[in-house]
């Protein structure tokens, strides 16, 4: 029903799926530099602040973040643990609201969205990939993906999504019958099956060995490349910075600096 999108050729518009501008402008592969103003803006944060606790126990997890993310970018958010990067990801994913500042997803004000609006936002626009996969243990790989395709607006088939991450042969296995890398690839298939505009990955390789981690990163990179999904990967593993269009260095709840790679490294060239 929903064939996997053909990788667009240079200069060619992606399939028009009724979401103007979203997949139109595909960027030339391995070529992006700094934030490309020509790409449509997806997220815009201004003075984004998140404070946990109060009084002496007050923790500024986000201390005024200004940021713009664009369609089709592959972003690596790099920082030590406790730097606030997960807090930022939660804000982007609509899981938590800020204490101050503003956060826009296109023309939606996420800062003031209510619970129902956030649920819709997550359902239609965001794909999540977690460090510990978070598959539903009682559902097979296919069913885990189908769970999402049933509620999504314009999904691909579970089979197509699993094929994209190379898991067709294991499609009817339960999570307990899959290795960690396979489980993470099911999680990726689950995240992309609804063709989200944004893919948020929280330490996707954190629980995996290097070889398996690279297989997972390849799957994420392929999705970003072929579907043009804005992809944000959180990691404390600096090696992964090489595969990004832009690397955001994060510490003490602030963006310390952003640098653009002249050329994205292939995941299989990474070593850690």
């Amino acid at each position: 029903m929903h064939p996997v999108r053909r990788p667009p050729l240079d200069g060619e518009d992606s399939v028009n799926d009724g979401r103007p501008g979203l997949y139109r402008r595909m960027h030339p592969v391995h070529e992006s530099a700094g934030a490309d103003p020509a790409r449509p803006q997806v997220f815009r944060a201004r003075g984004l602040t998140k404070v946990y606790g109060s009084g002496e126990a007050e923790v500024h997890a986000l201390a005024g973040v200004d940021l713009e993310l664009h369609a089709g970018e592959l972003i690596v958010l790099l920082g030590p643990s406790g730097s606030g990067k997960t807090t930022l990801l939660n804000q982007l994913g609509g899981l938590d609201g800020p204490t101050a500042g503003e956060l826009w997803y296109r023309d939606i004000d996420l800062t003031h969205a209510d619970e129902a609006a956030l649920t819709h936002y997550r359902r239609d626009s965001v794909g999540f990939i977690f460090q510990f996969y978070n598959l539903i243990p009682s559902l097979t790989a296919r069913e885990n993906v189908a769970l999402i395709t049933e509620i999504a607006r314009d999904p691909m088939t579970p089979e197509a999504a699993l094929d994209m991450v190379g898991l067709s042969p294991r499609i009817d296995h339960f999570p307990a019958q899959l290795s960690g890398g396979e489980q993470q690839r099911v999680a990726i298939a689950r995240a992309i099956a609804k063709r989200p505009e944004v893919l948020l990955c929280d330490e996707p390789t954190g629980a995996l060995d290097v070889r398996t981690g690279i297989v997972v990163l390849e799957a994420i990179e392929r999705v970003n490349r072929e579907l043009g999904t804005l992809t944000v990967i959180i990691t404390h593993n600096a090696v992964m910075a090489d595969m990004a269009d832009r690397v955001i260095h994060f510490s003490d709840g602030r963006v310390q600096r952003i640098h653009a790679n002249a050329r994205r490294a292939r995941p299989d060239s990474l070593h850690w």
């Binding site: 129902a116 965001v126 539903i136």
Partner: peptide, 16 residues
């Protein structure tokens, strides 16, 4: 709770 929270995160409403 983890499984249910995951469902919420990936876009299921509270009712679902």
């Amino acid at each position: 709770s983890r499984e249910l929270a995951t469902l919420r995160v990936i876009g299921f409403s509270q009712r679902e």
